[in-house]
Each structure stands twice: as structure tokens, then as C-alpha cells.
Design a binder for these strands. Structure first.
Lengths: 139, 139
DNA sequence: TTATGTGCAAAACATTTGCAGGAGT
DNA sequence: ACTCCTGCAAATGTTTTGCACATAA
């Protein structure tokens, strides 16, 4: 965990990051809290929030602000897009190639200094979709 | 306001929609509440939330779930993308042509029934940026 | 040793909901 | 009349924060 010089490497931070790296889902702060609490039962929810926020600022992890009420976090920091199931709320990565060039187009069309973009697809996942998509075993 | 047969046309709904159509910003529920309250001082915040949600479901308005803590609403329903200032939080439309074809690509790359997508650019607006972008008058 | 971090609990926001009375159709 | 809708207030859910104590460097 590569941090600012004055940023300390605490047990809490190590474990939060380790747990986040274990999963490919995009857990909410509360889900991270539950994961971490199995190893550090006395950790506070505030600590989890503080550290997720801090790591996101430092760029160690990604903070994903997509549809739904809660923010989600991702240990995969290389640029990629997401797809969200409008039925169950699950968020997954999607392997569409990242369009680096549209940032420049956006800069030309706006008065902004453009820093980046994010694409979120929405749809219904195969689990929520039920039968159709795959050969689900019902009967 | 074209609604379900059993959905009533109330003063509250008319005024909420009128106020939303007046602005090109993308107000939060609370900002809509403030706008509407000037004309209907006794309206409840719950009513504003209920009706914005309802209109978004019906497709009369757009619910925008982008970065930041609050949801935003938009009376412009034709598909378009947004750009958000990471400094002041303002959200504006951006005139990048909508890429209809990437939904199909996403469908092929995932196990989802893809319904659509949204792109959010992030950057720094000219106001927050200060000097550089435009000839701002300082001195 | 000392600035930074933590646990805990309270506070601050954002949104939803129950209910009794009000209003469209 | 008969639903649906509203205002109000309380409840719920998410995130932030103050503070005394703990701990990494």
C-alpha cells in the first residue's frame, strides 16, 4: 500500500485493502465493513468509511458512484466500465474497450477541463432474468 | 402531463413539472422543493420526492444518478450525456452524440439483457478553474 | 514522543413511509 | 362516493464527525 509519507500503514488499512482485493464484486462501504469485521471484530464503521475514502483519493482503489443509493468500491484500478442490474442492484465489470478519445471530444464541446469519464450500462442480469438467457435448471 | 389512467393531475404535479422545465440545471429533489415552495408554500418534501420518482418511472422526466450524494432530475428526456464538475458538483448536459451501438456490444460481452447506458464525464468547470479557460475579468 | 488513526456514539444528510384528512374524477 | 394524493412527522438508511484513547513511525 503506497501512501503519502505521513499516511500510516495500520492493520485496519491493510485488512480493508486485502478484503477488497479478494472480491470481484463492487462492495458498498457496509459490505466491506462486514467482510473486515470477520477478521477485526472491533473495527468501527467510521474507520471503514474514512479509509475507503482516503484510498480512493490516493488512487489505490476506485470509488464507483453509479445508480443506487450507496457508493461502491473496487480494488481494480485500471480503467474499465460497469454494468448494473436494475433488478438486484449488482454491479459488474464489462469488458468494453475504454474509449480514451472521447475525453478530448468532450473537452472541445464544453468549457471544462475534462479529467475522465465513466460509462454505466444498465440491464437485467441472467439471474434476475430467470429462464431465457441461459439453460437454467428449472424442472 | 401524460400519465397512467388512474394517475391524477394535481396542482403539485403540474407545478413540479413546470419548475423543472424552467431550468437547464439538474436540480436535486431538495432544490426542486425550494423552487416549488415559492409557489406552493405548504407542499411537503415527501410529495416532491414521491412525484419526481413517479414521473421518472413514467418517463416524463429523467432521474440522473451520477456522482455526488444526491439524485438529480432533468425535464429533458431525449438521450444525452452529462459532465460534472468535481469542484462545485454542478452537472451539465454535454452534446456528444449518443452511441446507440455500444448497447449491443455490451449485450454480446455480458450475460445481461442490456437496456441502455449513461456516460458521465468529470472535470473542472470554467468557473472553478478560475483564470485559464476564458478571459475572466480579474483586475 | 507526537502526529496520525481508531472506536464509539452522536450528528448530519438524504430518502422513504404511515396515517389522517383533502381533493380529483 | 371512491380512490388516489397530500402534508406532516417519524422512521430508515447512508455517510460524516467529535472526542478521548491507542498506536505507528
Amino acid at each position: 500500500m503506497q501512501l503519502n509519507p505521513q499516511m500510516r500503514l495500520t492493520t485496519q488499512r491493510q485488512i480493508i485493502l486485502e478484503e477488497l482485493e479478494k472480491v470481484t464484486s463492487h462492495p458498498t462501504a457496509n459490505e466491506v465493513y462486514d467482510m473486515v469485521r470477520k477478521r477485526l471484530p472491533r473495527i468501527g464503521l467510521g474507520t471503514v468509511y474514512r479509509n475507503l475514502e482516503l484510498m480512493a483519493e490516493t488512487g489505490i482503489i476506485l470509488k464507483i458512484e453509479v445508480g443506487g443509493t450507496q457508493k461502491r468500491f473496487d480494488a481494480t484500478t485500471h480503467p474499465h466500465y460497469h454494468i448494473r442490474c436494475i433488478s438486484c442492484g449488482k454491479v459488474e465489470d464489462i469488458e468494453i474497450p475504454v474509449m480514451a478519445d472521447i475525453d478530448q471530444a468532450a473537452a472541445e464541446l464544453s468549457h471544462y477541463q475534462v479529467l475522465g469519464h465513466h460509462i454505466e450500462f444498465s440491464g437485467v442480469c441472467s439471474t434476475c432474468n430467470g429462464i431465457e438467457d441461459e439453460e437454467v435448471l428449472i424442472n
